[in-house]
Design a protein around this nucleic acid. Structure first.
Length: 658
RNA sequence: GCCCCUGUAGCUCAGUGGACAAGAGCAACUGCCUUCUAAGCAGUGGGUCGCAGGUUCGAAUCCUGCCAGGGGUACCA
């Protein structure tokens, strides 16, 4: 017996079958659609029908006749059903004992067996340009990455979370320039990233006029100008002159930014953005600044290394003459490519400036520990959850990098091609293993009912706003319900927990690959399939245990003997609950393998529903016999344990009252 | 043009290791709070699983072709 009760039942059924017949690998043992069909169902008879040239039902009947369930404590019986399914039924009494005992013994570790190999995993997420406030799409990235990191940690792996700071890019420069250009009055009451973002958008309103102004002027200049037209042309010329001035100013400023002269200013924006991350319950281990990676010589070393490959060379002619290019033709797996030029990727332009892919290749090589040089780093701050946050820095300790096994980059789906280029560079340089262990968690965009968001135009909903609205809504709810019994600060605390959790849940409840339509009402409702439902179900487990203690029952003692309680004649609701609790480890494994947190949210919602049904149908504290009370308290305690573990991974807040 | 992702109920989404009657939440409608918290429960109505072929005992799921939406495909950032 293992720490995965459902897997044990699965294995038991599998063994019973294999003892009678060689089970082909394509035969499946799956959970049937309805409980009348048992707890696991095998289609092996269908698969064997063809090679044996016999009817599936006949094969199934012969197999079932030979199977002896009494040799397996968890299996009650096997039956033939339908056209030839072999349905296995659990011995629920034995199974419930095993499940409860496992959950009790494993506790916070329940759900994850010791990994065969403890991996070092590097998760990069967030990586938002430090130039304006986050919108909800950034929040999706952050929460997805945070949950993936927590999943790996829960599974016993060693995780480092990095947040890449593009401090030398155009966006950061634009914002810095906007502040110099407009010289706005400081607004201490406005969160700094919002303040800067406002002026960034203002700057782009000016720049965005260029094309139109040019066209309008051209239309006017076709004829002799007089009166109103002459004045209008003058205005347009002035506008274009202003645009030219701004653009020149940005280019000039860019040189200074690239030399790291404005790190302090960028930190101010970054710090405001980090507040958003922390209020969403996320944290990081390292801030990786692009400027530091370039200045520390990592980029140069990576390019020198990659130049050693026969597939990397300076193009001598053609449109890419003078560029350092990488020919990926022999290595490309990122989709069926037919046009050769797509596969000849520029890494360094003819003017010596690297492309994004070029820089990202260096970063990826550094992540895997493939470079000799290293950045220096220092402590940046201690985060609200107590985790230390480090940052790369121009001076300080040298960072001794351990070998990393897996690199997961949480980056939007539009960057799929660029990511494929970066990973392909690993195999081009002979690092096949690193190539295979590079994973792009490509997530879909977040859209508003009004269309897509645009950072430049300032269209979108900020993550801070969404969070605040949700907390406000939760506050109204808790106040309407509990104003009489709870103090103000307690209601505030609950509202924070409910609001934060609701936003997090929304961000990961969909398949990552899908685009998400963000409707604020769906988050604000706090009804139905939301984190509130899970929190509410868990509050009920808490409440039951509290009341049990009030009635003089020794909860700890009951839980201690969970596996040896009276577990016969379980009600259907109890069976369903036990079965769901036992399936938790498998859910974790699937979510991890697929990098899909929505597998876990789906499960958690189902579990909450099953517990709620149990709660409504089966009296716990008021059950008919003391034995029944103890059993149902143990089931509640077990559910509470699985909720705790699930909440830990999803980063949802546990509540005692709501 | 080529490549990738997506198309399931009015809306938002699960299900894509093939399996015996397509699921959930929201919205609509009907009931249920002196009874372990009604952010809840029970129930009703609502679907040619984008379309057309194919493979199979069996297809929302696999294959082919089409249609629709989004993204990518630059020495852009």
């Amino acid at each position: 017996m293992s720490a995965d009760p459902f897997q044990d039942f699965f294995q038991a059924c599998q063994d019973l079958l294999s003892a009678q017949v060689e089970v082909p690998p394509e035969a499946a043992l799956t959970v049937p659609p309805r409980r009348e069909f048992g707890d696991l169902s095998s289609n092996v008879a269908f698969v064997l029908a063809k090679p044996l040239r016999r009817a599936p039902r006949q094969i199934a009947q012969e197999l079932v006749a030979k199977i002896d369930p009494s040799t397996s404590p968890l299996v009650a019986k096997a039956e033939v059903a339908g056209a030839g399914y072999i349905n296995f039924y659990m011995d629920y009494e034995a199974f419930a004992a095993h499940a409860l005992e496992t959950i009790r013994a494993e506790g916070a570790a329940y759900g994850t067996s010791e990994p065969e190999k403890r991996l070092r995993v590097l998760v990069e997420h967030t990586s938002v340009n430090p130039n304006k406030e986050w919108h909800i799409g950034h929040a999706r990235n952050c929460v997805l990455g945070d949950v993936i990191a927590r999943l790996y940690r829960h599974a016993g792996h060693e995780v480092e979370v990095q947040n890449y700071i593009d401090d030398t890019g155009k966006q950061a420069t634009d914002s810095l320039y906007a502040l110099r250009y407009f010289q706005p009055e400081p607004q201490p009451e406005t969160k700094y990233d919002h303040f800067v973002g406002e002026h960034y958008v203002r700057l782009h309103r000016i720049l965005g006029r260029e094309e139109d102004a040019r066209a309008e002027l051209k239309a006017l200049e076709g004829q002799p100008l007089e009166g109103e037209d002459a004045a209008k042309a003058e205005v347009l010329r002035a506008e274009l002159a202003q645009i030219a001035e701004v653009k020149a100013g940005i280019v000039e400023l860019m040189h200074h930014v690239e030399h790291g002269e404005y790190v302090q200013d960028i930190c101010r924006v970054l710090d405001a953005q980090l507040q958003t991350a922390w209020s969403l319950g996320a944290s990081y281990d390292l801030l990786s600044w692009e400027g530091d990676i370039v200045r520390s010589g990592l980029f140069q070393e990576a390019m020198d290394k990659i130049k050693g490959s026969p597939y990397v060379y300076v193009a001598e002619s053609g449109p890419k003459a003078g560029c350092l290019v990488m020919n990926m033709t022999d290595f490309w797996e990122g989709g069926k490519a037919t046009e050769d030029d797509v596969l000849e990727k520029v890494l360094v332009r003819s003017n010596g400036i690297p492309t994004y892919e070029g820089k990202d290749i260096a970063y990826q090589m550094w992540k895997f520990g493939l470079l000799e040089n290293d950045v220096r780093f220092r402590l940046y701050t201690v985060q609200p959850d107590g985790r230390e946050l480090r940052t790369t820095w121009r001076e300080g300790e040298a960072r001794r990098r351990p070998k990393v096994d897996v690199v997961i980059n949480v980056i939007g789906a539009p960057q799929s091609y660029a990511q494929a280029v970066v990973y392909t560079a690993m195999r081009v340089t002979g690092h096949e293993e690193e190539y295979r262990n590079s994973r792009h968690l490509a997530y879909g965009m977040v859209y508003l009912p009004s269309g897509s968001m645009s950072g430049r135009k300032g269209i979108g909903i900020s993550a801070d706003e969404v969070l605040q609205s949700t907390v406000d809504e939760a506050y109204e709810r808790v106040k309407a319900k509990r104003a009489a019994e709870l103090p103000e600060d307690e209601m505030r605390r609950i509202a924070e927990a409910v609001g934060r959790s609701a936003v997090r849940y929304f961000m990961v409840q969909f398949n990552p690959s899908k685009d998400v339509l963000f409707e604020i009402d769906q988050v604000l409702s706090l009804d139905g399939n939301t984190s509130s439902y899970l929190q509410y179900a868990n509050v009920r487990t808490e409440s039951l245990m509290r009341k049990a203690a009030d009635e003089g029952l020794d909860m700890a003692a009951i839980w201690q003997e969970a596996g040896s309680l009276q577990l016969s004649e379980l009600a259907d609701e109890e069976k369903d609950l036990v079965s769901a609790l036992a399936r938790y480890p498998g859910v974790i494994a699937r979510a991890l393998a697929a990098l899909a947190p929505n597998i876990l949210t789906d499960y958690a919602f189902e579990l909450a529903g099953l517990f709620t049904q149990f709660y409504h149908k089966c009296a716990v504290l008021k059950a008919e016999t003391p034995e029944l009370v103890r059993r149902r308290l143990a089931l509640s305690r077990a559910t509470n344990q699985v909720f705790m573990n699930t909440f830990g991974i999803l980063g949802l807040d546990k509540l005692d009252v709501m």
